[in-house]
Structure formats: structure tokens, C-alpha cells
Simulated assay, not measured.
Amino acid sequence: MSKLGNEKISWILSVVFCFFLSSVLAMATTGDGGFAKELEVEKILKTLNKPAVKSIKIYPGIYGDDNPRLFTYWTRDSYNNTGCYNLRCPGFVQVDPTVVVGSSLQNNISVYGGSQYVLSIHIRKDQTTGNWWMQVGNTSVGYWPASLFNHMSVGASHVKWGGEIVNKGSNGQHTTTGMGSGHFPEEGYGKASFFKHISIVDANNSLASPKSFNPYVTNAYCYNITSYDYSNDSGVYFYYGGPGRNSNCP
């Protein structure tokens, strides 16, 4: 059985919580309902329908740089008329000044073959108010008000962890944008990106490991994902990512 180190890679994180979700390039999904406890890495996620909140790695179209950022987005109509990045419009309510959504994450970035760091995220629905709180490490950063969403009064029916790359196919070629660390998951710990200690909040409002995963990949020659595994040190985990354009992914 594969085993991850005590450190956890943090090429930064991403997750979508919603009623129904679109497929992404390298994604593991569970139908248990609930929310992730710890996760790492990716680029951009899109939802097909219903509300979503997510954190992504880099989006130069918003900030004009390639710095990894704590990034969120919500929508309740598939990006048509509702939704907001970070704090750019009313939506997410920031309550802690020390960890700000949209802020640049320039310290403690994992190095390929070197030091590995973690960014831990916990999202939970307040059973009294219905608001969706986001915690980073031990800090309660803020919340998405229950009033933003149409179909999440009880909880989410699906949770997905993974990554997506926007590929415009310029000049008929796949983008060279890397997912996660930019290396395939088969390279393993210290080189490939991963999620570990993946948990959901169950019907008893307690953290629990998902019962099953359904890996999905659109093109394994560009980006791939391993089957989920379990260890005492890492809980439920999997590796994913890839370089994009290469000799097998033109």
C-alpha cells in the first residue's frame, strides 16, 4: 500500500460542493454527500448546475500574475446571472482579517522533489443558520450565506475533488498548462499533487471517510488520477495532475 509522508503537498486546493456537478479533467467524486476536510491543489473548476464554492491555484485574468491564491467562487445558475469571485461582489462574508480570500500565497509553497507543505481546508454547513463556513487551518475565514443557494438547504448530494485546466486548443494544440504540480500522479509523493485525509460531514454532522470514489479523467495522456487508497497516516488519499501538452498529448 502506498504511503504519504507526514507533510502534505500544497500546490493549493480545489473542491466543488453542489447539487450536481460537471465532469472535470481529473476528478474523484463521492455520492455520500458532505464536505472535504483537507485537500490540495489545482487550476480552475466549473460547475454544470447549481451552487458551487471552490478554491483554485492561479487565475492571471483576475489579478494579472501567476501567484497561487486562496480563491473562491459561488454560483447558483451555472454562471449565467449569479456568482462572484472572492470579495469582488456581495456573497462570501469575510470575518477574519488574517486569512483573506483572494490573497496571494507566496510562502511555504511545495517544491518538486523537495519540501512539501499543506493548506488544510474544512467547509461545513452551520446546522442552525444554514450558512456554509470555510476554515483554513485553525482559522474560521468566513462564510457563504444560506440565502445564496437554491438547493443546499439540507446538504450536498455530491462532492468532487480534483483539477481542471481550461484548454482553448490554440493553433490546434493542447495547452501546456500543468495541473497540480505539472507531473503525472504515478510519480508519487513529493512530486505529484494529491489530496489526503479526505473527509465528508455525514448525516450526524460528524467527519467520516467517503465510502467510495469514482475517478474520472477526460484524457489520461494529458492529466491523470490514481485510484483512491487508504493508510493510517494519510487516511483516504489519491494523486493526480499532469503536464498538459506532451508527445502523447499534442
Rank of each mutant, 00 (worst) to 15 (best):
W74L: 03
T75R: 02
T75A: 03
T75W: 03
R76G: 06
R76M: 07
D77I: 04
D77V: 08
D77P: 11
S78T: 01
S78N: 07
S78K: 07
Y79A: 13
Y79S: 07
Y79L: 06
N80R: 08
N80Q: 07
N80M: 05
N81H: 06
N81R: 01
T82W: 00
T82H: 02
T82Q: 00
T82P: 00
T82D: 03
T82C: 02
G83C: 02
C84E: 02
N86V: 01
N86T: 00
N86Q: 00
L87Q: 04
L87K: 09
L87C: 03
R88F: 05
R88A: 12
R88D: 10
R88W: 10
C89T: 09
P90C: 08
P90E: 10
G91D: 04
G91P: 04
F92A: 10
V93S: 09
V93A: 05
V93T: 15
V93Q: 14
Q94G: 07
V95W: 09
D96F: 14
D96M: 10
D96G: 09
D96A: 10
P97K: 14
P97I: 11
T98E: 14
T98F: 14
T98Y: 14
V99A: 08
V99I: 15
V99K: 14
V99H: 15
V100M: 13
V100I: 14
V101M: 08
V101E: 06
V101G: 08
G102Q: 10
G102A: 09
G102K: 11
G102V: 12
G102M: 14
G102H: 15
S103L: 12
S103C: 15
S104W: 09
S104I: 08
S104R: 13
L105C: 12
Q106S: 14
N107Q: 15
N108H: 11
N108L: 04
N108T: 05
I109L: 08
I109Q: 03
I109N: 11
S110R: 01
S110Y: 05
Y112M: 03
Y112T: 05
Y112D: 07
Y112R: 10
G113N: 01
G114V: 03
G114I: 01
G114F: 06
G114L: 03
G114Q: 06
G114T: 03
S115P: 00
S115H: 06
S115F: 06
S115D: 09
Q116G: 08
V118D: 12
V118C: 14
L119M: 12
L119P: 02
L119E: 05
L119A: 12
L119N: 12
S120L: 10
S120H: 15
I121S: 05
I121K: 04
I121Y: 11
I121N: 05
H122I: 11
H122T: 06
I123K: 13
I123Y: 03
I123L: 08
R124Y: 03
R124C: 07
R124W: 12
K125C: 01
K125G: 01
K125Q: 08
K125W: 02
D126R: 03
D126L: 00
Q127E: 10
Q127K: 08
Q127C: 02
